[in-house]
Design a protein around this nucleic acid. Sequence first.
DNA 1: AATCCGGGGTG
DNA 2: CACCCAGGATT
Length: 338
Amino acid sequence: MTDFDLLITDWYRQNKRDLPWRNTNDPYKIWLSEIIMQQTRVEQGLSYYIKFINAYPSVFELANASEQDVLNHWQGLGYYSRARNLHFTAKTIATEKKGIFPKTYKELLELKGIGTYSAAAIASFSYKEPVAVVDGNVYRVLSRVFDLSIPIDSSQGKKYFFELAQNLITLKEPDVFNQAIMEFGALQCTPTNPNCNSCPLSINCLSLAEGTIKLRPVKSKKTKVTDRYFHFMVFNSNGNTYLEKRLQKDIWLNLYQFPLVESNDNAEISNWEKYTLSKPIKVSSEIKHILSHQRIHAKFYHFSEEPLTVDSNWKKIKLSEIQDYPLPRLIDRYLENE
DNA sequence: AATCCGGGGTG
DNA sequence: CACCCAGGATT
């Protein structure tokens, strides 16, 4: 197809949403929006973007914040390594680079938390470098238009789609092309029930002609989910409780939770070993919390006495100040419903 | 190359 | 329940 770029950019000019990070060339704002939006729908990430811009108007405010403050603002969005890397890179930019972002795809790639997609997005949106973005939308659009069955989660597939997109991108307005193909995937060429009836590419869409729309894109792997059983100790005496900071290489790194004992099944814990000898005054029913690779079965056990011993990563806090700490959604939701 | 890392929405 | 979302780091 010779005029893919024209068709897609024309569609974009008529159908694009008005999003705050589209009205700027500021690499800080572009970068922040791209990190927040990774694996996240615009409707979910938008309020976080606004919150971050208000709290940290420039890379210097972000660099000078504590990691806990950054994680607090990130709370509930998930994939918390994004927030930790965001903060790490802000400090790199503020100190080593005096607040000036790198201006090329190649240099941007060297920053922590910035991969091929984000580097291409920042380089094209801020500096009009003609390097193609390849995100979930782009995989879907291209695999359908060209009816490609090569798996998008293979190394070969990733390389193939990047080169294809790179061959299609316009040199005049690479930023518009990149925005256009992603917006087209998000609004028109959607995962289920794409709007092929009113699609400017339907005449050229090989997958539509072959009847393979529902099969595209192809993924070869399926994620396997493991079950975990969490038992949280909710201490409450005189309005105080204990939180523990998660320091292991595991989910929710550097977030806080009620002190946890993990077991192999959902049987109620009766022996809390060194932590307490008393019986809980209340035990919640099992709460299921779904992550991409884990199914967590959680129970909350309430104790009205102080623990017998306190681990080094525990912190005694006022229950009324618990929201000063970044909490996994599981904990936050339990507090909401309690 | 394979696996891990959240949370929410959809059919 | 399975799949997807403005992906990246680690092993």
